[in-house]
Design a protein around this nucleic acid. Structure first.
Lengths: 231, 231
DNA sequence: GCGCGGCTTTGATCTAGGTTAAATGTAGCC
DNA sequence: GGCTACATTTAACCTAGATCAAAGCCGCGC
């Protein structure tokens, strides 16, 4: 109805992201002018390995998985991207094509922010550069943690780590429930194991009384006990 | 003898790095004023996991390994840093302590550039921000490639990949020699396998006629054949 | 309610790569 | 040269986790 409505919402959404926080109206207008919404249905591909990079992507709602496909067609999920998170920034600065694919895990809305808008803003606003550097650093840090987990931790430790990380801001009063936000096969791949093995580990932890599994909901009766569990 | 000599050399060294290229004399002076040389003998620790980050490190000569240590004391090398390369930038932007340790693999000289000098320069020079973003992006990209290798490639493929990557700018005229720049155990750890397994793979490749091993020198008679080798 | 197609679980079996241990090099260093 | 200390190799054996195959389960459309 009102043509300006989407435009206004767009800027309000951007303003709430760490990357664009502290920007004034004019700055946001410039970014918004180079931003395009993109709706993807569950299962739909957002970008493919090899595609050129023309900007970066923000998830507004829904869920997106990033991953690679091996020569034999095996798929490995590197990251599950949630609302408010973004991907593809690094590629903008490298002029390199995507090395991962992105696919919607559920019906999702994304925003595509054109490279040029970002570059212009970087040249104009040192604060924006700093936030961009922070964002990339956080990503890098997370990836190093992932490498540590893949190379130095057992599957069981990775599963426990995942469950504990999913709590985030939730209460730490001990009887907690974690809701698995994606299918178990996707989570298994993200943790670098087969769905079968993931299932077995979940049940082992269940038998040990550390968790209770009800479909996609995992109840943790005693957080500290799960934190300290070995073998 | 001449007190100014080291200062001048310092700026000349910095000016040759991608990160500081295109900087004018005054800019370089400001950076150099907050840069301290650091000499580390082979085996000496440069920083430990948990240390606070006060700036980033540049390798002038020598070689530095970055890695983590598991709770059981097992060590995993994440990266081997060579002259002209740097590490620890991301941590500056996160105000987080080191999650890896750094140790000299051979007698090395490093430079420590203080956080403040970087931050001042970022606020002053958008070009520097861009180069910093490129640098971090490159690092991120490399890590994603590593994750792909760790999760989707066999040990043998990782070894072949490593040998081919070590060629870099070297001639691609087919009889090539690669010199392993670090001990085999360090390289094995970098490739996420045991020294024993690394040794076995090298000999398998040798038996298949793909490489010839002479101590730390590996001769590759036919590059294309090594590139295309499977199982 | 019924049946179809995709997830998830379970069990049996297999294997890449790790572990252990001992032999063999090799590099400094007196 | 000969010694010591460490790096590398070799061989035998073992295990975490993958693969394969067959049920269950569960949500969804009709």
């Amino acid at each position: 109805m009102n043509r300006r409505q989407p435009q206004i919402k767009l800027q309000a959404f951007l303003a709430n992201l760490p990357m664009f926080s502290e920007m004034n109206g004019a700055d946001l207008d410039r970014i918004a002018a180079h931003t395009l919404p993109h709706y993807a249905e569950k299962g739909q591909s957002i970008c493919q390995c090899g595609d050129p990079c023309t900007g970066f992507h923000l998830v507004v709602y829904g869920q997106v998985k990033l991953g690679f496909t091996s020569a034999q067609g095996i798929e490995k999920v590197v990251e599950i991207v949630r609302p408010g998170q973004s991907f593809g920034e690094a590629l903008m600065f490298l002029d390199a094509p995507y090395i991962v694919f992105a696919q919607a895990l559920s019906d999702s809305m994304l925003l595509h922010v054109a490279k040029q808008a970002v570059f212009d803003e970087l040249a104009r606003d040192p604060g924006f550069s700093r936030r961009m550097l922070s964002g990339l650093s956080r990503r890098l840090h997370g990836l190093v943690r992932d490498v540590e987990a893949y190379t130095l931790r057992s599957s069981q430790e990775r599963v426990i780590g995942y469950l504990l990380a999913e709590l985030r801001d939730d209460a730490d009063a001990s009887p907690v429930e974690v809701h698995l936000s994606a299918g178990k096969s996707v989570i298994a791949s993200r943790l670098n194991m087969t769905p079968e093995h993931f299932s077995r580990i979940l049940h082992e932890l269940g038998n040990a009384g550390l968790i209770e599994i009800h479909g996609r909901t995992v109840r943790i009766p005693d957080l500290e006990r799960l934190r300290g569990y070995r073998v």
